[in-house]
Amino acid sequence: MGTGRNRMIIAVASGKGGTGKTTVAANLARVRGDVTLLDCDVEEPNVHLFISGEPQGEPEVVSLLVPEVDESRCDGCAACSNFCAFKALAVLDKRVLVFAEMCHGCGGCARVCPQGAIREVPKRVGVVETMGAGGVTVVQGRLDVGVAMAPPLVRAVKAHIPKTGDAILDAPPGTSCPVVATLRETDFVVLVTEPTPFGLNDLKLAVEVVRELGLPFGVVVNRADSSDDRVTTYCREASIPILAEIPDDRRVAEAYSRGELMVDALPEYRPLFEQLYTDIVRLLQNPLIAGVARASCPCFMGGTPMPRGALQGPHC
């Protein structure tokens, strides 16, 4: 990665749900134009409500390889269940029970079985659908009803990130495995929040995740008004750049409720998203930032308070 990149992968995430991840991701994609927009919120994909298009090909069925035990060869040694971190296998009275819905598909059980009694069989978890919407290619994962294992499907969606050209990822809300699966190996994370106590609390959790992953990031404050400045104060004190503030504008909510993109319904917001894109590119082209991110330098990671806009410590 680093500078001189020929593609940029931006993830839009947030600790709290409903802060405007999809709004930011979809509007960013629209102003960018030639970009792949990937909906990684596979439990409830909603990008297609705002940017839709003609399906490109049949949905791709995604399966996970889960264990199947040949009881005639199994001697109940429990090597598999001892190995499995997810309790997808259990041994009772020398008999193996498989709980396929718990399996993350690592294949370790089959490897460690001394009897060669385990083979891996595909278990369907969902589909990946691709749509062409003008310059924007929309890729979305859709987890099957009743399936709880999102990360493998998130990875299948991310396999559609183009080799060249930019990609924008709409992450699931929260800070758990599906979010981490989305954020891994992206170049920049936009954390969307709102100026409320809940928004701030969950922003802090999300910041911990992106710092742990060593990714450069900035914050977008949605529904910004002047009544609560705790988010901006926190960002300043933690040396986190605020990339944009989307005003608390009722017309934005009305456009959203009609399934319209903000930049289409209210063109005066186009410059805000164009500037956001430009700023992200600028941050990533800054060799200090790019190098810092890869090296997980504590100065970028908020080790010492720095003024807003300062993105590296004095020693960098």
Binding site: F86, K87, A88, A90, L92, D93, F99, M102
Partner: peptide, 15 residues
Amino acid sequence: SAAQGAGIQAAQNVA
């Protein structure tokens, strides 16, 4: 505080 599989492990414990 197990992420998943608490019932399975508990059953193993009582067995």
